[in-house]
Amino acid sequence: MSTVDRLSVLKTYKLFVGGKFPRSESRRVYEVTDAKGAWLANAPLSSRKDVRDAVVGARKAFGPWSGATAYNRGQILYRVAEMLEGRREQFAAEVAAADGVSAKKAAARVDAAIDRWVWYAGWSDKVAQVAGAANPVAGPYFNLSTPEPTGVVAVLAPTDSAFLGLVSVIAPAIVTGNTVVVVASERAPLPALSLGEVLATSDLPGGVVNILSGRAAELGPPLAAHQDVNAIDLAGAPGELAVELERAAADNLKRVLRPQPGDTAKGDHWLADPGTERMLSLLETKTVWHPMGV
């Protein structure tokens, strides 16, 4: 028997678009390294054409996903947590390399990410009761306000928390019925691309989450200017790019989540209780009036 060490099988990282795993249509890749500069993988270098495909996938998925029952969406988010639980070691290793942290810290971040899916799963059938209202109008009318998802949301994921940060911006968007096109951390996209594999096996309909890797400066502008995108979360956009994208987003009056000071902070910022603001800011309030009478 040979004593030669077994050569490991490396993964070809691919995009996650419309429920499928394509390479970039541009056939470009870029080198991804760990914090010490060691080669990890070649990630797809997505193009603006990939952005368009991803938006098409997200729009197609929006009707069915927003129309699914809240109970159903909640179960699917919980299923994501279940699938991740079985892959904790894989993600801990990827996060350690991506975030440049110890194995222990990486494991804590993965656990927090799994727990975050569970937390948001529970929100699916409660958010309408918290964000909606029965309005006592001064007249004989039944008047009810309910939150509805904004639509297709573009997300520039946090750059320095490649997995926990990513989950913290995807889950609050999709739990209420939005669909997303997310640009993974440019420097550390691998946990995001692996998340696609988890989502694909969690009963999440194809197109609800679309994950692109590449340059934020290249993918951000076509997303911000896209007429069929309803909102943009700039959590991972560096200062000047964020301003440029916010300005471009005004063209079709996208809802804009500006980057908050904590979003780009290194360390364990994303471990904190996320609160409800991110989830609530990707909702529209619909108010229905109906006369009352015999």
Binding site: V137, A138, Y141, T287, W289, H290
Partner: peptide, 16 residues
């Protein structure tokens, strides 16, 4: 944002 069913152009301070 506002759907009026069997009515239209109704407004009220309590109604978003």
């Amino acid at each position: 944002g506002i759907v009026w069913s069997n009515t239209f152009n109704k407004f009220d301070p309590t109604s978003p």
